[in-house]
Amino acid sequence: MPADAASPDPYFVALGEGRYAPTEQASGAWQPGEMHFAPLGGLLTHAIEQHRRPRHAGEAAPLLLARMTFDILGFLALEETSVRVETRRPGRTIELTEATASIAGRDVAVARAWHSVAVDTTAVEGGAAEPLPSPADSLASEFGVNWGGGYVRSVEYRECGGRAPGRNRAWQRTAHPLVSGEEVAPLARWIGLIDGANGIAVRERPDRWMFPNLDLTIHLHRQPEGAWVGYDTTVSFGPAGHGITQTALHDEHGHVGFASQTLTVRPSPQR
């Protein structure tokens, strides 16, 4: 685990009434004073899970997360963040929940989560991607070689081999709590790592080309388990400033779903 795993700082400190203070561990990779979206995505997932928990404590059949989308609306300043949540489409078998993060009175990100009822479909289960080599069989590496920011340094990173420009397979986990002062579901911690997919399979050096993502979409065909997130990632750049990061997501038991990110590709000002 990372060197500070004995007493790791959280990514956010709960201040009450939907307000959270980010720590240096949540700082981003593109520029100083910026928050990395990965822990913010985890925070929005946490807020949705908190919002749903008391309403569904006695439901006959649980509703499981099927899809989560995040849209990044502007610069994510490393400052106090407020989160508000509402149920957009209530239901006993399908439900849509929305969470919005704001900083200094301005909305900066929105998350929408579809949950659907759990049904036994093991008789027709199939189509999963090939599993990755386990974290134990993967090579410990430095995620932060090409990146700055506290978030990148907070993550334990292992590569499965076969890295090439725009292509990689790897594992990540973190010892840092997502939020201090509130109970956090394992799912929120797991999703709070996925935005890192855009940094593990770089096609071009980030000090020469910038490729921040506008969004993150996650589809799950199985609920993830454990602390490790596995990535089988491909990055594509087009000819007119657009790109896509596509990832098959894994836990230690196998394939769980997919993630995609829309990239804005442009020369770095430092170039």
Rank of each mutant, 00 (worst) to 15 (best):
H36M: 00
P39W: 03
I48M: 08
P269E: 06
S7K: 10
H221P: 09
G230F: 06
E159Q: 15
H46D: 11
P267M: 11
E34R: 07
R205F: 14
L65W: 00
R53Y: 13
C160L: 02
A118D: 01
A197C: 06
Y11L: 03
H253Y: 10
A128T: 07
A5M: 01
D137T: 08
R19Y: 10
D71T: 00
R106S: 00
E204G: 02
Q172P: 08
A47D: 06
E204I: 04
T121Q: 02
F143Y: 14
Q270Y: 12
I200V: 15
I48V: 15
L40I: 00
G196T: 13
S116G: 00
F37H: 05
E98R: 13
H242Y: 12
L263R: 08
A60D: 13
T174F: 05
L216E: 08
D195E: 03
H255C: 00
L214E: 08
G161L: 02
P10F: 03
A185Q: 14
F70N: 11
P239Y: 03
H115D: 00
A66G: 15
I72E: 10
P54K: 04
T93R: 15
S82R: 13
H46E: 04
G127W: 02
P177V: 06
T234G: 10
G16S: 02
V155C: 09
A188D: 11
E98I: 10
S268W: 05
D120C: 00
A60M: 03
G226D: 03
E142A: 13
V83P: 10
A188C: 04
I94M: 14
D120N: 11
H242W: 12
P186F: 08
P239S: 13
R208T: 13
T264R: 14
A240Y: 13
T121L: 15
E225L: 13
A57S: 14
H219D: 15
R208W: 07
A21Y: 07
T217I: 09
T97N: 02
L15W: 03
R84V: 12
N146P: 07
D251S: 01
T264W: 14
E49I: 08
E59G: 01
E59A: 13
G166S: 02
R112V: 04
L216K: 07
D232N: 07
V13Q: 07
D9C: 06
N198V: 15
R55Q: 14
S102M: 10
G166Y: 03
G181H: 09
A185M: 09
G241R: 04
G166T: 10
W114T: 09
Q172R: 08
E182N: 04
